[in-house]
Design a protein around this nucleic acid. Structure first.
Lengths: 104, 104
DNA sequence: GACTCGTTTCGACGTTTATCTAATTATCAA
DNA sequence: TTGATAATTAGATAAACGTCGAAACGAGTC
């Protein structure tokens, strides 16, 4: 849980997650949205990967990142429960069908 | 928002928040639950205070900390909305509509 | 093979974090 | 005023962080 919140504590990483919500993207595509070096982005990806929030897949020269919504949801769910809140996927778009696919 | 997630990324601080959920507590009372020095706890309190998650009040020799549920809720709400989720407070009265201004 | 492209790894650097002990401030009680 | 108690501040240190440029790696292409 700490690693998830840590990952979430950086605006760049939150934005990456947000971009990934629209579907898988390559490292390069994601990096285009930010004014930092590729090396820096790569290190952000590593943080997200270690938190389990994304998974990467090699495709030729590229590395494709996928969001793992379920991990994010579980972490938030565990936490919000402590405060008597309920977190629910509000019925709507799960772009590119990556809703509750468990592949660890 | 970053400061909130940053504050949440430490287990000690999350536990403090959880303890505070049961009502206001003094710095000393809170510190009793952890195996670190008072000075360290004081610094954790400062992080929580700067994130707006708690407020402190002087009472004689003691300093009483209060949880500001609304700030936590707002941050989580803003974030979860990005992912199409809904966060619902179950029963808690969100006291005082003040919105802590934070922009980092 | 040699070359290029996309990405990650490798140092390096300055900043921030978590932690400690010691010192300080503020308050209350004799 | 002296002493005890509660909490914060000061100063130190080791580890982690965010960042970079440069080098290295892996997969295609020539």
């Amino acid at each position: 849980m700490s690693t998830v919140f840590k990952a979430l504590s950086d605006p760049t990483r939150r934005k990456v997650l947000e971009l990934l919500r629209k579907g898988p993207h390559s490292a390069g595509e994601l990096a285009e949205h930010f004014a930092v070096s590729k090396a820096t982005m790569s290190s952000h990806f590593a943080v997200l990967r270690e938190a389990g929030l994304v998974v990467s897949e090699k495709d030729g020269k590229q590395v494709i990142y996928h969001l793992r919504l379920s991990v994010l949801e579980d972490a938030l769910l565990d936490f919000t429960r402590l405060f008597g809140w309920s977190l629910a996927p509000s019925a709507e778009d799960s772009p590119k069908g990556e809703t509750h696919d468990e592949t660890r």
